[in-house]
Design a protein around this nucleic acid. Structure first.
Lengths: 198, 198
DNA sequence: ACGCTAACACTAACGGTTAGTGTTTTGTAT
DNA sequence: ATACAAAACACTAACCGTTAGTGTTAGCGT
């Protein structure tokens, strides 16, 4: 009955089940009635947990919506760190972000993103995540052993890449928008590489 | 007694006075005790207004801190729209943002920005403003009569410029950081201009 | 079997924000 | 001058997300 691939302990399984129950309930209620008109207390009641339990699993109401995007950060960092030898960082990012945008603009993730864009609170939270990921990405770029990039340059490229993701996601033609933005990123990156010293 | 340069009506003068009174009181209290430990009700009491009056003048607690940066948006747009004939948008932005960074990192504005960076709430709000300004700036760039820039390109450059401002402001050597970032921006901009059609 | 710890529940509150409902002030048209 | 409409302001009470404090239960290692 229980999935044997899950962590062994009954305790952790129950914890994960509670977590999933909360997230699923919340998302369902958000879809039914809209994000803003569903209160935390209602979600907790519906999911049959205490409000404090909900906040033990999720840091905020907004985080309930972004539960699914948990691997976003990991994938970005991996794209930079594990890219093929000799492959450009920009190319690796371009491909990875193309896949991420595609994932967001097709399938059942679409509904969630329209919900996010309709709520100021969620949009703000998305922005906060964007900056957080940009910081992580910048660190990953600077940590790449085959590159010697200044802090400003890596910060800038990372922010640029995240902005490209967001712009493409919001665009009518995501593929084209992303390619155009990455054309600019490539140029900006070249400028830092050619003016390298030492 | 009253400043004759202010708007004529007694009503508007009183309104402006109330507004300034609230903002000044709030900023003083924030400086004395820290942003987070001063409550809205305390500010209202100290400024001798009702809480609802406070929120009639400012949309949120955070907005009290950013009262002084009201002309930021205007200056950015003006830098693009009113630049010398034939001058590059990037150069105009570079100069204007250099001045803005200098204003933030010297003088009495310094204390406010350290306060902002110490408070997650204020940092988030600053981010929201950054994006708002980037949007306005993008519209200004696209509206420039002597340019024909795609929506993606202007959005990207605008975001890039705002990111440069933030990065420079946070940097140990703001001037150098800004110049480095704008080197990249210039390259990105050139890429869009050279691949122009029609 | 026993104790330790983590997960969860419950109540109550805090702090920003808003709705509802007047009251006073000010500009304007009579 | 006077009356009227609108804007500014006040007050109460609440809403909503979030947290602290305090127990209670259930699983894990010994």
């Amino acid at each position: 009955m229980t999935n044997p691939l899950q962590p062994a302990g009954r305790r952790e399984r129950k914890k994960a089940a509670t977590r999933r129950g909360i997230a699923d309930t919340a998302l369902r209620m958000f879809r039914e009635s809209g994000y803003e008109s569903v209160g935390i207390r209602e979600i907790a009641t519906e999911a049959d947990v205490a409000v404090t339990t909900l906040f033990a699993h999720f840091p905020s109401k907004e985080a309930l919506v972004f539960e699914q995007a948990a691997d976003f950060e990991t994938r970005l960092v991996a794209a930079v760190a594990d890219r093929d030898e000799g492959a450009s960082v920009v190319c690796a990012l371009h491909e990875e972000i193309r896949a991420l945008v595609q994932h967001c603009t097709t399938g059942d993730a679409t509904g969630i993103w329209t919900m996010i864009e309709q709520s100021p609170e969620l949009s703000t939270y998305a922005q906060v995540l964007e900056l957080r990921y940009a910081r992580t990405l910048a660190a990953a770029i600077q940590a790449a052993p085959d590159l010697h990039t200044s802090e400003v340059a890596s910060d800038t490229i990372a922010r640029f890449a995240m902005a490209a993701f967001t712009l493409a996601r919001q665009s009518a033609d995501p593929e084209a928008a992303l390619d155009e933005a990455f054309g600019m990123i490539r140029a900006a990156w070249s400028a830092t590489q050619s003016s390298e010293e030492q």
